[in-house]
Amino acid sequence: MLDAFSRAVVSADASTKCIGGDDLASLKGFIAEGNRRLDAVNAIASNASCMVSDAIAGMICENQGLIQAGGNCYPNRRMAACLRDGEIILRYVTYALLAGDASVLEDRCLNGLKETYSALGVPATSTARAVQIMKAQAAAHIKDQPSESFAGARLRKMGSIVTEDRCASLVAEASSYFDRVIAALS
């Protein structure tokens, strides 16, 4: 498993050169924005169970066949497995966001996931849809700009706005990890 720093080390070692100049500048940026990253991770971790259940519920709303007899979420047991898998995927995305590198997500979650799901008969399109919903939720939580029209009385904000750009770079980074999950499933 690598983080942003060890990723720089591994790529520098491949050409046996020291880390200086541009590589260090980007790592300094990582440190300077470290608190934003930790807040983003906290925003996802603190809302994880809500995000997962909403994503799975949304996926089912769009495809009612999943909870009818023969559907992949039909008995409670399979619905529970579905919720658990949603949480696992979100957890590894959170780890990747904390580390600033996708290796933990790739090695420990996505490697062989597609093969496992096709062997178990889990529909990849539905899974990808749930991940897509989590991607939108994560972006909203990191931006701390939840949709008032959708949330209504359940609107929940993490705090007041701290950064002007609402952590746009972290939103993009988190989205890229979700995109990796979707790409690995399809």
């Binding site: 498993m1 690598l2 983080d3 720093f5 060890s6 080390v9 591994v10 780890y95 904390l98 580390a99 600033g100 933990v104």
Partner: peptide
Amino acid sequence: MKSVVTTVVTAA
């Protein structure tokens, strides 16, 4: 590669 972040993630 062992670092503070990877140690934390491994434990979690």
